[in-house]
Computed example of a mutant assay.
Amino acid sequence: MERDGDEIPQPTRSLDVEAAANQTVVLFEVWMPPFRDDMAERAVKKTLTIPKWLDELAVENNVNFSRVLQDGLKSHLGVSERSK
């Protein structure tokens, strides 16, 4: 909801919730910062294209493609860590 810009509803007091005889009111707390951090660090799969000769040379040299791409993007963008 935060990411989509949706309005986040205010919490309802448990005493104000009307439950039927076969229903139970459950209280839970949502603390977003740890979840946001976890989501930001989650790996995202990317598909890319490189010349065959470069792929073969990189494979021969045991290149970690993900690490090289991450390092290259950080260098290109002038960052070393995620800004919070």
Rank of each mutant, 00 (worst) to 15 (best):
M1R: 01
E2K: 10
E2P: 00
E2F: 08
E2R: 12
R3V: 07
D4S: 13
D4T: 10
G5Y: 04
P9Q: 04
Q10Y: 00
Q10S: 10
T12V: 09
T12K: 03
R13Q: 15
R13M: 04
R13A: 01
R13I: 02
R13C: 08
D16K: 12
D16R: 13
D16S: 06
V17K: 10
E18Q: 06
A19R: 12
A20P: 01
N22C: 10
Q23N: 13
Q23S: 13
T24G: 08
V25G: 03
V26E: 09
L27S: 13
E29W: 05
V30W: 09
P33Y: 12
P33L: 05
P34S: 13
P34V: 01
D38M: 13
M39R: 12
R42T: 07
K45T: 11
K45S: 12
T47N: 04
T49H: 14
T49Q: 09
T49P: 01
K52D: 10
L54M: 12
D55A: 15
A58T: 06
E60Q: 13
E60M: 14
E60I: 06
N61I: 06
V63S: 12
N64Y: 07
F65P: 08
F65V: 00
S66C: 00
L69K: 11
Q70Y: 12
Q70T: 02
Q70P: 00
G72F: 02
G72K: 08
L73H: 03
L73S: 15
K74C: 10
K74M: 10
H76R: 06
H76I: 03
L77N: 07
L77F: 02
S80F: 00
E81C: 10
E81F: 00
R82W: 12
S83L: 07
S83N: 13
